[in-house]
Computed example of a mutant assay.
Amino acid sequence: MTTGTSISQPSPDELKVTAHQQYDTPEHLTPENVLPDPLAQFRQWFTAVQSSVREPEAMTVCTATASGVPSARTVLLKQVDSLGFVFYTNYTSRKSRELAENPRAALNFYWREVSKQVRVVGRVERVAREESEEYFHSRPLGSQIGAWASRQSSEVAEGEVQARAEKLKQRFGDQVPAPEFWGGWRIIPDEVEFWLGKPSRLHDRVLYTRVEGSPDDAPQWKIARLAP
């Protein structure tokens, strides 16, 4: 990808970005050359970009309240299993509250270095408690303490979280139990789109759409090309 970025500021309260990135990836993406299963296709792409993309597991998670007010943030993908995409968080956080109210989410991966994106829309479920505990105990000790110390998305005073963390270190030592208020969410996809940057904005886009009524453990997919 080549970049010619120009930024102008016509007035103090206005900013215009006239960037002209030109994408020219050597690959081609078509419904005929992708794998039948979007999760397998994702694993193939994800494995391929490990050496060239910084933090490829970073993904935007979009949620919404029951009334449809959206919010988005970047989190880290931790697992892709046979059902979907898994990340971990505090169950009292804003994202978790919204997922409990409205159990659907959208994900987006943007791998700038290789001009690729993956977009996911699907239903959500909590990860089994045993899985959450297993992952929790694989985290560095500081991250385990941090999960206890942070009442995520709540207002705090300066230094409050750090002070709580120090007390928890003394309380738990190096044996930190997994909090009941912390665990994983799994997004079970109903659609997955793969995007490949091409010149003149004529990008390759391939969309997988779950065939209605097909089971989560053996889904069937319609695969189609989308206009850029």
Rank of each mutant, 00 (worst) to 15 (best):
G183L: 02
V121L: 06
E155L: 15
A149I: 15
V211D: 06
G184Y: 00
P189T: 14
F194P: 09
A165V: 13
T209C: 12
V121Q: 08
R164W: 04
V192W: 12
P140L: 10
V206S: 09
L83C: 07
Y88R: 10
S143L: 07
A106L: 08
G183E: 01
V124R: 05
A165E: 13
W182R: 03
H137A: 13
V206P: 14
G183W: 00
Y135H: 14
A163M: 06
Q144L: 05
G159A: 08
L99C: 11
E180S: 05
G197V: 03
K169D: 03
R94P: 01
I188Y: 04
I145A: 09
I187K: 14
S93K: 10
K169E: 11
D190S: 09
W195Y: 08
V127Y: 00
N102M: 13
P189W: 09
E131K: 06
D81E: 08
R123Q: 12
R94A: 14
Y208Q: 13
P103Q: 09
K198D: 00
E134F: 11
G146E: 09
P189R: 06
R104M: 03
V120S: 01
E160F: 05
R129N: 08
E193Y: 09
L207Y: 12
Y88P: 03
H137Q: 15
Q175L: 04
E193G: 01
R139Q: 13
F136G: 05
V211L: 06
E131V: 03
A100Y: 04
Y208K: 13
R171W: 04
T89P: 12
Q117H: 08
S132M: 12
Y208R: 09
I145L: 15
K116L: 06
L141G: 08
E193F: 09
S138G: 09
D174K: 14
V114D: 01
L99R: 13
I188E: 08
L107C: 04
V206R: 02
V206Q: 06
P140K: 12
S132H: 05
S200Q: 10
A157Y: 06
R186I: 00
E191Y: 00
A165N: 08
R123L: 11
S150L: 11
V80P: 01
P140R: 12
A128I: 00
Y208L: 11
P189N: 07
G197Q: 01
F87C: 11
R119T: 07
Q117Y: 04
I145W: 02
R112V: 10
V156W: 15
E98G: 08
R119E: 06
A178F: 05
K198Q: 15
P179I: 07
E130P: 01
F87T: 02
L141F: 13
R171E: 15
V121R: 08
Q144P: 07
Q79K: 15
E180Y: 07
R139H: 10
H137V: 05
D81P: 03
F85E: 01
L141W: 15
A128D: 14
A106P: 00
P199S: 08
K169F: 09
D190F: 01
L141M: 11
A105V: 04
Q79S: 05
R129W: 06
Q162C: 02
A147Y: 09
H137F: 10
K167Q: 14
L107N: 01
E98T: 08
Q170N: 10
S200V: 02
R151G: 02
Y135I: 00
